[in-house]
């Protein structure tokens, strides 16, 4: 790891100026992805701006029909939150299934979505539930936020502050995890909410995507049977040592059915 200037601002305003003023600055949440990246010298920022001092960015609150989760909220807190379990139990389940207890104790929702790993779990939940990402500059719909493999709409000096999740009538997440890391080989989040049924897939492609054909079928008949015979093309899916594209395409169907069954 190359050395860098470490800054730990005490306020969001100070963090904004620190990141804007740095020559080649990088924000740090829990460091669960950033520190391994620095060790591998895949990144060598001049400055690391630690958001760990910003207590205001951590926490979960109810706001009308929504659950609002601060960017610095750790996965373990989402998994254990009584408010999340009551309003969107599928989201608490998803958080509980991330990595291992030590990853959940330090990894954050803001860091996870900013990183937009193709195999990360949260992107599927944000897209299926129609969440909104609030930043220091604007509000973005989840589908506009995730733009590609490890790519988001975020600008270099833009800080995610919180994520707003509308509650759903029914929702569930089913994942086929990599047995070593627990990252999703394929994960499918299904939600039936105010603006219809959404099926969001992570792990399978370069970034999270929706399956329109499944959504139409489930809008008419919200049952696993309705998904029989619907297949996803393997053409643009990922192939790696863990699974080939055709296997991932098959898993999308299986995980979608499991999610619908679990959503009840």
């Amino acid at each position: 790891m190359y050395d860098f200037e470490y800054v730990k601002p005490g306020s969001l305003d100070a963090a904004k100026s620190a990141i804007a003023g740095a020559e080649d600055g990088k924000l740090m949440a829990g460091g669960m992805t950033l520190i391994p990246t620095l060790k591998q010298r895949l990144a060598s920022p001049s400055d690391v701006v630690d958001l760990g001092g910003l207590g205001d960015l951590a926490g979960i609150r109810k706001d009308g029909n929504s659950i609002v989760i601060g960017a610095m909220t750790r996965h373990a807190e989402v998994a254990a939150s009584a408010d999340v379990k009551a309003a969107i139990p599928a989201l608490a389940d998803l958080a509980e299934g991330i990595g291992d207890p030590q990853v959940r104790n330090r990894g954050t929702i803001g860091g996870s979505i900013a990183n937009n790993d193709p195999a990360a779990d949260y992107p599927a939940a944000l897209v299926a539930l129609g969440a909104t990402v609030r930043t220091t500059k604007r509000e973005l719909a989840a589908e506009d936020f995730f733009t590609g493999m490890f790519e988001t709409a975020l600008e270099d000096d833009e800080i995610i502050t919180e994520v707003v999740f509308p509650t759903a009538e029914k929702a569930a997440y089913a994942k086929f995890p990599n047995p070593a890391s627990r990252y999703a080989i394929v994960g499918v989040f299904v939600a039936k909410g105010g603006d219809g049924v959404k099926v969001a897939v992570t792990g399978a492609g370069p970034a999270v995507f929706r399956v329109a054909e499944m959504e139409t079928a489930l809008s008419g008949n919200f049952s696993a049977d309705a998904l029989q015979g619907i297949s996803v093309s393997a053409d643009d899916l990922n192939s790696d040592i863990h699974a080939g594209a055709d296997y991932r395409a098959h898993l999308v169907g299986v995980m979608a059915q499991r999610a619908v069954k679990a959503a009840g």
């Binding site: 460091g31 669960m32 520190i35 391994p36 630690d50 030590q102 990853v103 104790n105 330090r106 890391s181």
Partner: peptide
């Protein structure tokens, strides 16, 4: 960050000390 041989408690919670900076 995979094996857990480095787990310590930080403010009461278990954490991988190989994936945390001393300054944190």
């Amino acid at each position: 960050s995979q094996c857990g041989a480095c787990v310590v408690h930080v403010n009461g919670d278990s954490a991988k000390s190989c994936t945390m900076l001393a300054v944190q």
